[in-house]
Amino acid sequence: MFATRLVHRYPLWRRHYATAAHGAANFQVFNRDVKRMQKDRAASNVETSRTVDYLKDEVAARVADRLMDIKRDFNTVVDLGSGCGHVVKHVSKDMMKKLIMCDISEQALRRDADEYAPVEVERRIVDEEHLPFEENSLEAVVSSLSMHWVNDLPGALIQVRKALVPDGVFVGALFGGDTLFELRTSLQLAELERESGVSPHVSPMTDSSDIARLLSRAGLTLTTVDVDEIVVDYPSMFELMEDLKAMGENNAVLSRRPIIKRDTLMAAASIYKELHGNPDGTVPATFQIIYMIGWKPSPTQPLPKKRGSATTSLKDVLEN
C-alpha cells in the first residue's frame, strides 16, 4: 500500500459481499435521487466545486495512467460516473478517439462542457446501476470515484462485463473501507458522549478484500487490484466536511439523520484534533483508493498454466 499526501489550500461502515447474485437489485443502502441532487447542487456552484477537484483529479490521473499502460488505441471509451470531467483532463488522442462521459447529474456533466478537451467528448445522463449499452459494444470502460455510491456493485460489474466486447477492459477506482476513518471515529465518539448512540454519518464503503472476488464473480478475468492512500490536511474537521459537500460526496445513506446537533459537531471536532491532529494544528483526512482492472473473457487471452507445471522453484529464485 502506498500513501500520498496532497497539500490543499488551506463516515464509515464497510459493505461486505458474501455473494454476488446475478441481477440482484434488492440491496439498497443509498438514496440515488438524493445523490443526484447533491451532485447537481455541488456542480451548480461552479467556482467552489472547481476548487475541490484536487482529489478527484488526482485519482482520475492514476486511472488514466492505468488505461494508458494497456498500450491499445481505443476508438471509444466510456467513463461511468464521470462527474464534471476528471478523467478527460488526463487522456490524449494516442489513447482514444472519443470519450463518452456518463453521469446521473446533468449539472455535473455540463459544468465544464465549454472547456477544451483533448479528444472528442459525448455527454450522456446515465445511472451506473442501469447501463443503456448493448452487449459486446464497448472496447473499454473506466470509472473513477463513482461506484462507491452504487447500491448493487456486483450487478453493476456484471452489466459492465456484458457491455464490453470480448477482451474489452474495465479500469476502475473507488473509495475503500478505511476512507475517512478519522472522521468516522470522531463522530462516533462524540455521539456516544453527547447522545448515547451512534448514527451513520459517513457512507459505507467496500472493503478491499472483496473487490477481486467481485470482479471474478462478475465474469471478468485477468483481474488486478491494488490499494493506496491519499492524505489531505485541513485546518479543521469543518473544512473537510465543507469540501466533501462541495465535491458532492456528502452522505446519501437511506437511514442517515438529517442534522447533527451543534454541540455534537463541536465535540467531534475537538476529538478529531486530539486523536488525529498534526503538530502544526491541521487535521489529516485519509482517502483509501481501491484500483481495479478486469477483462472480458476472450479465446485470444493468455491462460494461466496448470497447477504444478512450474519448472523453477520460487525458493531457488529468491536465493539467487
Score class of each variant (00 low, 15 high):
239 E>C: 12
215 L>W: 03
219 G>L: 08
213 R>C: 00
241 M>R: 05
231 V>H: 04
193 E>D: 15
203 S>F: 11
222 L>Q: 09
230 I>C: 03
239 E>D: 15
236 S>H: 04
205 M>P: 02
223 T>V: 14
242 E>L: 07
194 R>P: 11
230 I>W: 00
242 E>Y: 05
190 A>S: 15
230 I>P: 00
202 V>W: 07
203 S>A: 12
227 V>M: 01
190 A>E: 10
193 E>H: 15
220 L>G: 03
215 L>A: 05
209 S>Q: 11
222 L>H: 10
217 R>Y: 02
196 S>V: 09
222 L>D: 08
209 S>A: 13
236 S>T: 09
197 G>D: 08
190 A>I: 10
227 V>S: 02
240 L>I: 01
233 D>A: 06
206 T>Y: 03
225 V>C: 02
213 R>A: 07
228 D>K: 03
192 L>M: 15
224 T>N: 07
222 L>C: 06
198 V>G: 07
201 H>A: 03
203 S>W: 05
219 G>K: 07
191 E>S: 15
240 L>S: 00
236 S>P: 01
236 S>C: 11
196 S>I: 09
208 S>D: 08
192 L>T: 14
225 V>W: 00
217 R>G: 01
226 D>F: 13
217 R>D: 02
221 T>R: 02
221 T>C: 08
225 V>A: 01
224 T>L: 03
198 V>T: 12
194 R>K: 15
235 P>T: 05
237 M>E: 05
226 D>S: 14
240 L>K: 00
239 E>P: 06
204 P>W: 09
218 A>S: 15
205 M>H: 12
226 D>R: 12
198 V>S: 08
232 V>L: 05
242 E>K: 08
218 A>I: 10
191 E>P: 13
218 A>C: 13
221 T>V: 13
240 L>G: 00
229 E>G: 04
211 I>H: 01
192 L>G: 15
243 D>H: 13
220 L>P: 03
195 E>M: 13
221 T>G: 01
226 D>I: 04
191 E>Y: 13
202 V>N: 07
214 L>V: 04
207 D>A: 13
195 E>W: 10
216 S>A: 11
218 A>E: 07
220 L>K: 04
227 V>L: 06
238 F>H: 02
207 D>T: 10
205 M>R: 11
209 S>L: 10
216 S>P: 01
240 L>R: 01
214 L>G: 00
236 S>G: 09
241 M>C: 08
199 S>C: 15
203 S>P: 02
206 T>E: 02
221 T>I: 05
189 L>A: 13
209 S>M: 10
223 T>H: 09
194 R>Q: 14
188 Q>D: 12
200 P>N: 11
194 R>Y: 13
212 A>Q: 12
236 S>R: 05
242 E>A: 09
228 D>Q: 06
198 V>K: 08
213 R>M: 05
242 E>Q: 09
